[in-house]
């Protein structure tokens, strides 16, 4: 389905989306951003996969990158280790 390739949104391997400093779980963001659920949501499409970087204290896109990238380790059972 090549014509649908634009739908693939896997971030590059060294981008924030796979970094252990990056947190973008909706439940986490709804706690970290007070008031978010009053008029929006962590599950909204407009948020895309943005999240918080604990290393730089930035709110940024999962496609961002920096020299401090640290990959999430994955255990044999498929659990990500942060």
């Amino acid at each position: 389905m090549g014509w649908l390739s634009f739908l693939s949104r896997a971030a590059p391997g060294d981008s924030c989306g796979t970094c252990r400093h990056f947190r973008n779980d909706p439940a986490y963001l709804e706690k970290a951003l007070p008031g978010l659920t009053s008029f929006s949501s962590g599950h909204a499409s407009v948020r895309s996969d943005d999240g918080l970087c604990a290393e730089h204290d930035l709110y940024l896109s999962a496609n961002s990158a920096c020299p401090r990238y640290a990959p999430r380790a994955v255990t044999a059972g498929g659990l990500s280790i942060r």
């Binding site: 947190r23 973008n24 439940a27 999430r72 994955v74 280790i81 942060r82």
Partner: peptide
């Protein structure tokens, strides 16, 4: 995938 420190991560 589950995050061993508590929160789910994509």
């Amino acid at each position: 995938s589950a995050d061993v420190t508590g929160g789910a991560v994509p």
